[in-house]
Design a binder for these strands. Sequence first.
RNA 1: GGGCUCUUAGCUCAGUUGGUAGAGCGCUUCGUUUACACCGAAGAUGUCAGAGGUUCGAGUCCUCUAGGGCCCACCA
Length: 704
Amino acid sequence: MNTTSTLESDFPKAYVAHEHEAALYALWENNGTFAPSTDQSKPAFSVVMPPPNANGNLHLGHALEASMTDALVRYHRLKGDRTIYVPGADHAGIETQTVFEKALEKEGRSRFQMTREQFYEETNMFVQGFRGNMESQIRVLGSSVDWSVNRFTLDPAVIERAYETFRKLYADGLVYRGERIVNYSVKYRTAYSDLEVEHEERTEPLYFIKYGPITVATVRPETKFGDKVIVVHPDDPRYQQYIGTSFDCLIVTGEIATMTVIADEAIKPEFGTGAMTITPAHDPIDYEIAQRHNLPIHKVIDFDGRLLPIAGDFAGMKVSEARTKVAERMMELGLIEKTDPTYTHTVGLCYKSKQLIEPMLMPQWFIKVRPLAEKAKEAVESGAVRVFPESYKGVLINWLENLRDWNISRQIAWGIPIAGAMPENPDVANDPDTFDTWFSSGQWPYAVFEAASKEGGRDYMKEFYPTSLMVTGRDLTFLWVARMLMFGLYVHGEVPFRDLYLHGMLLDPKGKKMSKSKGNVVSPLDLIAQYGTDAVRFGLLIGSSPASDSPMAEEKIKGGRNFANKVWNISRFVCMQLGEQDPSELPAPKAQTEADTKILAELARVRTETVDHFENYRFALALQGLHEFVWHQFADTYIEAAKNQEDRQNTQAILWKVLVDSLIMLHPCMSFVTEAIWQRLPGKWEKNAEGVRSILAQASWPTE
RNA sequence: GGGCUCUUAGCUCAGUUGGUAGAGCGCUUCGUUUACACCGAAGAUGUCAGAGGUUCGAGUCCUCUAGGGCCCACCA
């Protein structure tokens, strides 16, 4: 900075954020400010950013997450910790594929018209375009990440890491390929894990079909073409005489079929008539029953969601259409005894298309998660990983206790091909599928450090893993967090992060969920352009609490802008008071007046409280306390008193001390304005031999 | 079916270990004091959803009730 220029030019009356921010981020980036210190005597503080999807722009949720994380990261850096914040970009498997497919649709194209390689290549180009965009937006948010360890989820090292874990699971017998009922999305032509299925309550007719002497109840008459078995509970007195016997009866095809009655504990006598027929190829419970009794399994529905030739006249018809048509036919045949039109149950929907999930029998890779989940559960229970807020501890444990095997096969192109994991193993090598994105994402915390370590120069793995903290949305508790815990413990025998902080979702100003379809999405970049990054960060952080959703409040952001301006003007005032006085030559501050005593005591108090708040992830309270102190104690009270104080030098010393400490303490949340001021402070104070000002982001947290 | 969570000033929300209610915005009155009108001074506003309990003391812990919200769930 030019120290000879006048105050007016260095400190214009108003702080206009966009005139400073880009240059300040460049200052940090060009000076390697965010590279972790090499001082091994200092404790490490490491955070891995949940890699944003490289398929669009950052949204306000990213801004919230970045504000929180960056505040903590900057706080630890100021405290002198060996701090690293790792950025990244997520290929985001099916998320990206659906976004890209929509883009193709607009051009009248479809992925089904391309080869798989062609589709992959086009998706990759699409993603790489967005990736740079997304990374520049991380800079706009002010995130103090170490770009030298930046990583993409499809980097070769990350893919190899996923393969290595797969091989270990395979060797340990924890992953298997099996033909089982999976959640299948007809729209996207891929299977899902249980977590990608949404549930919705629906009222649909329950049909009572009369098969000879026994009536069965079903909501899916369209699957009743191969009916040969009726299942009842072994203890049901109504059906004792039939168990193990067979009889002939009319079925929907108009033919006479032989029905055999078997008994299975899975049947609930109180449901319907206590008797049902099974469709093993399209229902998980039915499939299990079929397995237990060695029954044949016939597919009725194809991967387009249409009926197969077994359906005779109905073959080729969509399931939804066939349902009523088949029921009508049954009615004509006198097979329907009655219908209950008020029957309400829950159906599974594809979380992306909201279309019905079609349970399908498919050969897929499954992870036996029980042993992995057990370890994760122990880690949460024992506090090996601390959960903020604590109420999510139970939520996490509850989920880990009730896990079923995890289907990691996806029939999508945009992902890590399973085949590459074990080229020598024909079971694997011939598999056309890709991994569930969360299979590789679940390994992200160590994958990034392993990859960085491999590049040589520094053992990041040893220095920074396990990480100190994971900050992510409460919506990812199961999808991502639980998986990271399981893999971290399985692969490296320890939790991937010591602390977990879950934040809530940002809602629109009316308190509604933001979504593209509702058109109520607010762009953080627009807000930043208008008010500045610090203002947006302030507005998102203030008055928030862990895991609870909060509406986006422009008034709070405006308040943040006003506060940034206040801090700017306080600094401006203090610099004017100093005049020609070089702050490095000021005497130590002494409490001479009542106002002096008060402000120094308040400063000490806010310093202690701020540390306590940051250490316990209460950044909203930290910021609130600083806001109150700086604005009302310092500006409104002390500065007003200072204007009339007689011992000018001592007053200058106190003003200076309070200003400098305030700037440092505010820096985690108000990063840009505080650095902008820091770079304009007068005199030789904090300058090196070349007269270059130190960087606030690397300053030392005030101690007394 | 199971779990979590919320109900505090007109609005949006804070309130960490239990100790006589807070912020921002809004509102009222005043002030153009040479840091700031993106400002300052003074001020009004709450039986902290309801009922009961524990306690010397509860917005803060426990139970129940009412009403929101969220999540999980192989209910043919």
